[in-house]
């Protein structure tokens, strides 16, 4: 009975035109997650929620390019006004809504959604890799090293995997907090680490560098059509990146957007991968409320 239900669900999801599902997932994302959490964004989030609800209910409104254009214009206004405080995923949201509005203005909506998601994702991951190389903090592992020692969210994970004693981890945090109270300048603070934490930091750094560069290259190969083996790896790399990164780091809007764009560019000949994107999309939705706290709590309990 369960398998029958799953087969029916699968048919129901994959049976509808891909671009319509992409538009629905985008509306659902904006409806539930909004543009941002800051209090001044409330009127905009309310406007987005009402618009998305109407678009989800009415198939005619869902494919109205003017509505997608108005969403893109609203985001453009918000970004132009508050660009100092705009995160990367909010820029990506703007570009994606622009893609939806432009693609709906032509009769090749599905192809344009697919093409643009590949192009935008490869550019975004390429730039992310470039910055990591330019700053050099991933090459020597220092970014993750300090994040594991002082970062509130990932401290438990790095400490647990690197064998840092709980008492030492708390002392490190106290040192950083004390350092933050003192005027900046001629003041330094030495933290305590272990060879395990250093190793885990390097491992995490090179994993992030390689997977982001891999996604960029594989998507570019997908656009070029060769080499085939690398082009076909893009979906697996993107799915691994979303799940591995966003299980620990609380940037779920970015993850949801990546899952939507991943689904939009995934070939219709690969139904399992398309279902995997949908599953990851909902996993990110749930993880925002449950999984992250569970994981973090687990590591802190283990410490």
């Amino acid at each position: 009975m369960t398998s029958g239900f799953l087969a029916h669900l699968r048919e129901d999801i994959l049976g509808q035109p891909r671009h319509l599902l992409v538009l629905k997932l985008t509306c659902l994302f904006l409806l539930f997650r909004g543009y941002g959490d800051e209090p001044y964004l409330f009127p905009f989030n309310l406007f987005f929620a009402m618009l998305c609800m109407a678009m989800l209910v009415s198939p005619t409104l869902l494919t109205q390019r003017l509505l997608w254009g108005s969403l893109a214009l609203s985001l453009l206004y918000l970004i132009a006004r508050h660009w100092h405080f705009t995160d990367n995923h909010q820029y990506l949201m703007l570009y994606w809504f622009l893609v939806c509005a432009l693609a709906l203005s032509t009769d090749r909506t599905d192809e344009l959604l697919s093409w643009n998601s590949r192009l935008l994702l490869s550019l975004a991951f390429g730039l992310a890799t470039l910055w990591k190389l330019l700053e050099g903090e991933y090459l020597n592992g220092s970014f993750f090293h300090i994040v594991f020692l002082e970062g509130h969210e990932l401290r438990g994970v790095g400490g647990f995997l690197g064998g840092l004693l709980p008492r030492t981890a708390h002392e490190n945090l106290a040192i950083v907090q004390y350092l933050n109270l003192l005027p900046p300048g001629a003041v330094t603070a030495t933290l305590t680490t272990t060879s395990g934490v250093r190793f885990v930091s390097l491992l995490a750094s090179y994993f992030a560098l390689l997977i982001e560069a891999g996604i960029c290259l594989s998507l570019l190969c997908r656009l070029a059509g060769k080499p085939r083996w690398l082009a076909e790896a893009s979906d697996y790399l993107l799915l691994i990146f979303i799940v591995s990164t966003f299980s620990f780091a609380q940037v779920t809007r970015f993850a949801s957007l990546l899952a939507i764009m991943g689904f939009a560019q995934c070939s219709q000949e690969r139904p399992r991968l398309r279902l995997a994107y949908i599953a990851v999309y909902f996993y990110v939705f749930v993880s925002h409320h449950v999984h992250f706290h569970f994981l973090r709590g687990g590591f802190q309990w283990a410490l």
């Binding site: 970004i79 660009w83 705009t86 990367n88 992310a128 910055w131 330019l134 970014f143």
Partner: peptide, 13 residues
């Protein structure tokens, strides 16, 4: 590098 839309978030302290 974190801000400005260049995708430099999480690249540096």
């Amino acid at each position: 590098p974190w801000e400005g839309g260049g995708f430099g978030m999480f690249s540096t302290l």
